[in-house]
Nucleic acid binder design. Structure first.
Lengths: 208, 208
DNA sequence: TATCTTTACGACCGATCGGTCTTATTCATA
DNA sequence: TATGAATAAGACCGATCGGTCGTAAAGATA
């Protein structure tokens, strides 16, 4: 690495590989991610990849972190730009749906696919995915709690169920959107209606 | 084949293979389904499988039909035993959650996994999966419509959104249950509350 | 009993899988 | 400018992939 902050050759390669890996894994699955295909797509040698990661598993873990960074940038950050409370909570839901609709990844969503792929399996990769999954839930939960504390959601709000509903709508939106070209509209409407029901001041939210 | 209805040797093999194939595919994915592993698990030769199906794709299609039959028996039929209306609709949701909780398949749910696996891909297998997906939605929609027509759900009920919510709860239950040992309780509670809100006679439904 | 189809097996095929090893080049630093 | 680490390529490895082929039982039918 150079003493200043410039990207050296290897680091540039690393980023390019991980970009392609996230895209490829969103299609073929994180397990189905093939080093041969990845190398071919990037026009580098397969063995060259092993100069950066010792094994496929290590590359998978790096791919997860990379996808997590993209998610933070593309989905979480825009939502955090909204004022704290029910508006920020709904913004997070909306930017998630946007992410799917924008077709950012050919396979829909890296994390949703990976989670379903590794259901019931154990190992460091599934473990890491489970942790990321929990983080996402905790973020939703935090935003919901803040909305209650700000007095923008009625005091008795069952936060656990609300978080479940919002997340469920997102997952189902992805599935239906890609499968039968429906989903995001319903997911938006359903959550919006739910939040307006719970909001102390419904005018904070869009009209629908 | 014999003239009477008995299962001949080949048919028995076929059933045994498809049982194992559904289980294996629910773990490894329908694409990741390996003929070698399948043959090994059943203690038959790999080439023997080709006496029954001409290609892997044909076996995949047969596996889908087999899983569809299991779903019809284990999930749909029990629900249809309930009286038509809001009770039958909720029973379908419950028997679906039961199916997951019972851990009938090691990988959670054959269809949910397969759908996510084939998101964004095309071919006869994804096409068939999409059709089965649509059938499921149509069933939910029919039961919901019947509940409205029976006067058990308020007339203005937005059926499309209700179906989306129920299905979303099911998918999320599966995902969260297997990943973080939570889900089915929320999925049951959330849908039950929603249906009680919409029901003209809430006493038709459980207390929660 | 003789015949024909169904069912199953073992040997084998080319392609691809993840991974190793040796060698060559690039590049920051001393 | 010399040096050593980082980066990359190519040849190669055993294992497994989906799939083919020839052959041998098993079972139904005549």
């Amino acid at each position: 690495m150079t003493t200043d902050g410039r990207l050296v050759r290897g680091e540039r390669t690393r980023t390019a590989v991980l970009d392609a890996a996230v895209a490829l894994a969103s299609e073929a699955g994180l397990g189905g991610l093939s080093l041969g295909q990845l190398a071919e797509r990037l026009e580098v040698s397969k063995s060259g990849l092993f100069a950066h990661w010792k094994s496929k598993e290590e590359l998978q873990l790096a791919t997860i972190e990379h996808a997590r960074g993209q998610w933070a940038t593309d989905v979480v950050s825009p939502a955090l730009a909204q004022p704290r409370g029910v508006r920020r909570l709904f913004a997070l839901h909306e930017s998630r749906l946007d992410f799917y609709t924008r077709k950012a990844l050919p396979g829909g969503c890296f994390f949703a696919n990976a989670k379903f792929e590794f259901i019931g399996r154990s190992g460091v990769v599934p473990d890491r995915l489970a942790t990321v999954h929990l983080e996402w839930f905790e973020l939703l939960e935090r935003l919901a709690r803040e909305a209650v504390e700000a007095g923008e959601l009625v005091p008795g709000t069952h936060i656990e169920d609300l978080v479940f509903e919002i997340d469920a709508a997102g997952v189902a939106a992805l599935l239906n959107f890609r499968l039968v070209a429906r989903g995001p509209q319903e997911a938006r409407r359903v959550v919006l209606r739910r939040l307006r029901d719970l909001a102390t001041d419904p005018t904070l939210l869009p009209e629908e």
